[in-house]
Every structure is written in C-alpha cells, then in structure tokens.
Design a protein around this nucleic acid. Structure first.
Lengths: 170, 170
DNA sequence: GCAAATTAATGATTTATTCAAG
DNA sequence: CTTGAATAAATCATTAATTTGC
C-alpha cells in the first residue's frame, strides 16, 4: 500500500521535493472526464462528483476535489477559448460593426456605406425617443432619483475618445 | 428618424428580415455596459439611458432602446442563470449536500502549523475523504443513490475494466 | 541520447461577482 | 442593507513537453 500523497509540501523553504504535489490524471481519466463534459455535463453535483471520482479511482489515484476542479477549469478554459475566438473575430473583422457575420445567409445587403453616422448620433434627441422606443420605454419613464454621480474612466486605450461618463445616477 | 440603420431595402413586406435590424455592440460598448451593471445599475432611468447611449455612440452605432434592452436582457439572464442553477441543485440533490464550492477547500494556506499529519492521508479510503478533505469536502461527504445508469464504454483499449459509470444524470 | 533550461498545460487557490434571504 | 450561497474569473503553482547544448 504505497501512500498516495506522502507530503504535499514542506512549509517553509523552497518546498522543493514535492513528489505528489498534485493530481496527475491518467489518459483514461481524462478521456472519461472529457466525454462527460462533451455529453453536456458542466457543473456536476456533489453526488455526481462522488460517483465520477469513485469510478475513476479505478484508473488511478483521484479525489473528488480533483473532479470538481477539473470541471471548473475545463469549463472556464473552454469558455475562455471561445471568448478569445470571438474577440479575435471582432478585432479582425473591424470595429465597423456592420454585421459582417452573415449568420442568417439572408439576402446579403451590400451595405456599401455603413459609414458611421456618428455625427447624427450625437444629434440624437436627447430627451425623446423614437416612436417605437417611446412606446416601450415610457414605462420606465419614471425618472430615477439621481443622487450620486458615476464617472467612468477607460483603461488605457486612447484609441477612443476620453469618454468620461458623467451620469447622474448611482 | 431612427436612421442609423440604413434600411437595406424598403421592401420586405413585414419589414422583417432587415439585415441591419439588430444592434451589434462593440466590445467597448459591452465593456461599459457591463461595468455599469456591475456598478449596481439595473434598470436605468430614461435619462440615464439617454446619456449612456449618447456616450456609447462614440464606439459605434447604438440607440437608446439598445441600452434599454441590454439592461433588461442582462438582468433577466443573470437571474435566469441563477434560477437554473438552483433548479439543477434542487433536482439533482435537493438535500443538504450543496454543490461543491471551491471556498470550502481553502484552508491549507492559513493554517499556522500545518503539522505533518500527512500520514492520515495515506489512509485515504477510496470512497471517503481524509479529515482534512472532509472538512473541505464535507459537501461531497454523501454517497449517492443511483437512479439511472450511465454506461460508459471505452474505445478499444482493454487495459481497463469495463467501467460503467452509473451516474444519475443525462 | 541525456539532462538542464525553457515553455506550454493544467491543477489548485484566491478573489470578485451575482441574486436573493433575513 | 447585510449576508449567505455559489460560482466564474483571475491568479498562483507545478507538472509535462519541448528545446538546447553537449
């Protein structure tokens, strides 16, 4: 009966010799976990975690928390991956915001001049909405009680205007 | 005159499939909106919506109603997400065994004197957790009952046992 | 071929949010 | 308004891949 994890880590010092520092899943374990994930399992319940762990223990040392962490990490990193792809697409396509992705393969209207009409936007009637909007938006026409001011400052990208949102809410 | 959206085609009968019909927020816009949401804003007033929209128009085409809908949708979806989690929990566990939380694992660091009680770890039984873990994983500390059976079959490698995962999901 | 050095993956922790009870 | 519950995001840390010099 060789111990599983003999010594997590020495307290001080370099904590060097960590032998059994962390779970190292076998390929079988990873395969099962991945398939479960692909089957749609995202955040297994405690019950599920226990069962999975129990089953996977056949293939090697494993604890429930490993399963828990695995799903957390895998889910997060899949999402991260997706997000990055989307961001890349957005960045590469342009900031011109035309719906470049013709998901709807409908008639591709050649918006030859999307041309940001920003200037017009600035003229946007600041105290009334379009008809359509007014119908929907008059419901919250109850103005809020402005108390504090909220200033929003951007990170570092000076590509955009300074934009300090001085909104009279919050 | 909501003419930001260049009408791709006046025809269209129901005015349906307008290509430009849908607002496509830029990452900057989303960032600002998200930050506002995180700052506590849930249902902005008309004034607030106008100001936000006005500011965000710097980054691309946007209308007030977009802001309005964004907040409505975001709020609703956040809530929906929570509800969904709760429902899942209730359906699958509906007991004291809450969902595994990472918070409950965290204890390793703060211990003043870790004390090499590691040997206990060696006793780690395959279907229960060590004391240390049990403290953290007490949420796992319940064995499940098997409702449905989920049989998992491996590819080809017979190096492993049959392994039929009997999990109560899917 | 082989280790030391470096880089890429990924397991494990910590931190910041969210909604909603009390 | 405060706090409980539960992440998910961000981060830390260690292991495996790989590169490199010999």
């Amino acid at each position: 009966m060789s111990g599983f994890c003999i010594k997590p880590r020495g307290s001080g010092g370099g904590g060097g010799g960590t032998k059994c520092g962390r779970w190292n899943p076998t390929t079988e374990q990873v395969k099962v976990l991945t398939d479960l994930f692909r089957s749609g399992l995202r955040t297994p319940s405690t019950d599920q975690i226990q069962k999975i762990s129990s089953q996977l223990s056949f293939y090697g040392k494993i604890e429930s928390k490993n399963v828990f962490y695995w799903f957390q990490n895998h889910k997060a990193r899949e999402r991260q991956k997706r997000r990055r792809v989307l961001v890349d697409e957005r960045n590469e396509i342009h900031r011109e915001d035309k719906v470049a992705t013709a998901k709807h393969f409908g008639e591709i209207n050649q918006v030859s001049e999307p041309e940001r009409v920003v200037e017009t936007l600035q003229l946007f009637p600041l105290n009334s909405f379009s008809e359509l909007e007014s119908e929907k938006l008059r419901f919250f026409a109850k103005e809020g009680k402005e108390n504090t001011s909220f200033s929003y400052s951007f990170g570092a990208d000076m590509n955009h205007p300074p934009l300090d949102l001085r909104l009279s809410f919050l």
